[in-house]
Amino acid sequence: MYQANSERYSKMVYNRVGQSGLKVSALSLGLWHNFGSVDDFENQKQIIHAAFDSGITYFDLANNYGPVPGSAEENFGRIMANDMKAYRDEMIISSKAGYLMWPGPYGEWGSKKNIIASADQSLQRLGLDYVDIFYTHRPDPDTPVEETARALNQLVVEGKALYIGISNYNGQQTEAIAKVFEKLGTPFVISQPRYNMFNRGAESDLFPVLKKLGKAAVGYSSLSQGLLTDKYLNGVPADSRAKKSTSPFLSPVQVDETVATVKKLNEVANRRDQSLAEMALAWNLREPEVASVLIGASRPEQIADNVAALNNLAFSDEELKEIDQILGQQSNIDWDKR
């Protein structure tokens, strides 16, 4: 029987989510990869245990996470029922709706039909009465923003979600839906953008809007699919995700395009007595609007490696300037796809 580490809250940092009363762990665990039906279930349990034992309280899911879609929620639900049920009130669990989940015109995007059905399905797979945060996973160009907002608000009214979030919304889209949420009194508190050293668009577009609205961000793709680690400093390992992946976000070509920049960043990290991954996570957290950064893990040991980033969160002006210069030299990459 799993029993959580009694010292789990001693080293983790907890940040307030905008102007709300909610706090989240500075590092949160994303279940996009490694928690599907094709992955080892015992390893999944060990990763969840390691995260919670390290003080990570925020666990981020979506209805389509797998493969197969839905299986990450099913596996997490099994772990909750068997190991984590006693700790439910210490956890922030989120899910999302918006990407394709079932065939036909109602299986994706942001209609009321999709959002309500998706939320009900997610709660069933998770074995939960409610999630702490429910997100619309992407803006829907064909559905009025009022419809999406009202559907999300209904989840709160019905007790199926405590807070509402949005994901992959730019600044203008965020302002538009926030106006509806404000009229409805919806507890919209957080936005989830892709954010890392290789993707900084949110700094000029989204973060100023969140600051004005009193909302927060939790960044995903925090290590750019592993590019911002030491894994690819000397080429592409045969067993790496870049070698095996068919994802547009990671390939041997992308490793080659970024390796010179990554090596320079690694030199800065070494001077800070950090691994490159630790520095990259700390750098994400330097932004005042970023309450938490999502990490992924394929092994329990990686949790401790990432949590070590909290040992050195401060950057000097000189370090930030050097990092900006290094990233500025990387001009041949389409950062929006990293």
Rank of each mutant, 00 (worst) to 15 (best):
V255P: 11
W32F: 02
D83L: 05
Q302E: 11
E158S: 04
P237F: 11
I79A: 09
E146Y: 08
G70Y: 05
K96H: 01
E278S: 08
Y87I: 03
D273P: 02
W335S: 15
L22T: 10
F41N: 01
V259W: 09
E257P: 03
A4T: 04
S251E: 12
N64Y: 02
Q325R: 15
S331P: 02
Q3H: 09
A291R: 04
F315W: 08
E301A: 10
P252A: 10
P300T: 05
G185N: 10
L100S: 06
S298Y: 11
T246K: 15
A277I: 04
A50T: 00
T57P: 06
Q19E: 13
D53R: 08
S191M: 07
N43G: 07
G36K: 00
L250H: 13
F315R: 15
A151W: 04
E289T: 07
D40G: 07
A202M: 04
E74D: 03
E42N: 12
D305A: 09
L123A: 00
N15Y: 15
K211Q: 13
S118G: 00
Y58N: 06
A202Y: 06
A86T: 04
E42H: 07
A149D: 07
R16S: 14
Y9A: 13
V24Q: 12
G21I: 13
F181I: 05
D132K: 12
A72W: 00
A178D: 12
E257K: 14
P300H: 14
Q173K: 13
V157P: 04
P208Y: 11
K337D: 09
L162G: 12
L213S: 13
K244H: 14
Q329Y: 15
E7P: 03
R299G: 03
D336W: 11
Y106G: 07
Q172L: 11
A216N: 15
V13R: 09
L27I: 09
G296L: 02
M91G: 11
G66I: 00
M91N: 10
F76V: 00
Q121S: 12
Q3W: 08
H33T: 02
L227C: 08
K231V: 08
N311Q: 14
S118Y: 00
N196P: 02
K45H: 07
A62F: 02
D324S: 11
A81P: 03
G55T: 08
E147T: 06
Q225L: 02
L61R: 10
Y220S: 04
G159Q: 07
G159R: 06
L294N: 07
T148R: 14
N199W: 09
A50L: 01
V145Y: 14
